[in-house]
Design a protein around this nucleic acid. Structure first.
Length: 476
RNA sequence: GUCCCCAUCGUCUAGUCGGCCUAGGACACAGCCCUUUCAAGGCUGCGACACGGGUUCGAAUCCCGUUGGGGACGCCA
């Protein structure tokens, strides 16, 4: 099976008509993993033969998403729009060899035919009425159809589905060139998979039905079909195919929401594939353990909650340096330049990672480290910044100003001592302090928060809080 | 409608050739513990072999059917 002489070549072939979605990303991942595992080559091909719908903007978004995911390709991107001469040549050859013919049927005629077939409860398919037409029809620019075999069957030994058999009678003569001469999908895929020497075609389940047609064209061209692997679809929570209405489906949207690429990859690889009870896989482990033959046959439902859990896991357990790299980007999105002042993002990551499931969330709840908050959280202030907090805060203010070494341990001791000396429970001191410093009721542990903020900022914010209490709790 | 495919907890899944499965893990959910906030962490609980027939000493695992779901049927890819 795995001939050492035969190098594995896989490809990801999106059509640039939108963003890179979750399902496409998983297909890309599977292809990438398979190539990497076998020391093969991974090719990126842009299927932009439909000029109406393809945009360069969409190409850029796809490339950006691939780069963010870290799915690097060894060849490409190859643009099908640049290979039209080659497709024309192949179409011409099929025409000359009688494997294809011109069809002059109008769209109206075809619609009629289909409708009639539907009414007869038949599968709508082209009946081949132009197969033997000799003369062109006036005023109609023809399409080219592939002449599909009438008899026999196409057997596909799919790497994930097993053997699937299609009767040629079920297939019709599909269009391989539009009336404007441009090639269609089923032709370009075949030509490219052959020309590019693909050894394995790993793609979505929705292409399973196209496969026998493609194999027939390949054979007509004298080519040997690659191995196919049709991976199951990803469904939304309502059981329908995953789409925009199920929430975020674009890869870059996940980036923007604060997901780590490795978390998304890890989630995706576990959709339809498992290795025992293991849930977390590093990229290297995926490459080592993944095998397309182990992919499940059934569709799986996209579960955002589990992705979120994985993301949190990666935030907590990855190298803080790495997480900080991504956090910087998110801080930047919020208009913060961490280089311009404030704590090192690496320290922020260490302080925040338990309580933030996304980097976006972490960036947002870390804003107070980098700039003054506008106002106190209403509830938190009402509960904590009241008369009773005045004395503790004043005392803390003094103590901190007098403190020589600004370290978490000594800061911790100050808070402890203050509470003790005032005969208060720790919460009565720490919580008002937290609100004074962060503006809200939630922050990293108070000593860490103090430490990261620095003496100057702590002093200023305490002064602000004291003033706030004095102003607000003075009864008129 | 026709063809193709699929079927284990709410979700992702484990379940090597049928026995070790009174079906395991993870997410979610609930409760308890820990606790200076929020978390994190620990423990416990809830919860599935779609249904009906076979085959067999024995089936989640094999066969058939039913039902349910998905996909394809385009001068889209």
């Amino acid at each position: 099976m795995d001939h050492p002489t035969m190098t594995v070549r896989t490809r990801f072939a999106p059509s640039p008509t939108g963003y890179l979605h979750i399902g496409g990303a998983r297909t890309a991942l599977f292809n990438w993993l398979y190539a990497r595992k076998h020391g093969g080559r991974f090719v990126l091909r842009i299927e932009d033969t439909d000029r109406e719908r393809s945009t360069t903007e969409s190409v850029n978004v796809i490339l950006e998403a691939m780069a963010w995911l870290g799915l690097d390709y060894d060849e490409g991107p190859v643009y099908q729009s640049e290979r039209f001469p080659r497709y024309r040549e192949v179409i011409q050859r099929l025409l000359e060899e009688g494997r294809a013919y011109y069809c002059y049927c109008t769209k109206e005629e075809l619609d009629e035919m289909r409708q009639a077939q539907m009414e007869r409860k038949q599968k709508p398919r082209y009946d081949g009425r132009c197969r033997h037409r000799k003369a062109p029809r006036e005023g109609v620019s023809p399409v080219v159809r592939f002449r599909n075999p009438d008899e026999g069957a196409v057997i596909i030994d799919d790497l994930v589905r097993g053997r699937v058999v299609f009767q040629n009678q079920e297939l019709d003569d599909l269009i391989i060139a539009r009336s404007d001469g441009t090639p269609t999908y089923n032709l370009t895929v075949v030509v490219d998979d052959l020309d590019m020497g693909m050894s394995h075609v790993i793609r979505g389940d929705d292409h399973l039905n196209n496969t026998p047609r493609q194999i027939n064209i390949m054979r007509a061209l004298g080519g040997e079909p690659p191995d196919y692997a049709h991976v199951p679809m990803i469904l939304g929570e309502d059981g329908a195919r995953l789409s925009k209405r199920h929430g975020a489906v674009s890869v870059l949207e996940y980036r923007d929401q604060g997901y780590l690429p490795e978390a998304l990859l890890n989630y995706l690889v576990r959709l339809g594939w498992a290795h025992g009870d293991q849930e977390v896989f590093s990229i290297d482990e995926m490459i080592e353990l993944f095998d397309i033959k182990d992919v499940n046959k059934s569709a799986s439902t996209f579960n955002p909650a589990k992705l979120l859990w994985l993301n949190h896991h990666y935030i907590m357990h990855s190298d803080p340096l790495h997480v900080a790299h991504h956090l910087r980007w998110h801080l930047g999105q919020l208009g913060i330049d961490p280089e311009a002042g404030g704590p090192d993002p690496v320290d922020v990551v260490a302080a925040q990672r338990e309580r933030c499931k996304t980097l976006r969330e972490m960036a947002e709840s870390s804003l107070f480290f980098y700039r003054d908050f506008e106002q106190y959280d209403e509830k938190a202030a009402k509960k904590n910044l009241k008369q009773a907090a005045l004395e503790p805060l004043k005392k803390l203010h003094q103590q901190f100003q007098a403190l020589q070494n600004w370290e978490p341990e000594s800061l911790h001791q100050v808070v402890l001592d203050t509470a003790q000396s005032l005969d208060l429970k720790l919460g009565k001191v720490a919580q008002p302090l937290r609100v004074a410093l962060s503006g809200g009721a939630v922050s990293p542990p108070i000593d860490v928060t103090l430490y990261l903020l620095g003496k100057e900022v702590v002093s200023a914010r305490l002064a602000r809080a004291i003033k706030y209490i004095e102003k607000n709790s003075s009864t008129p």
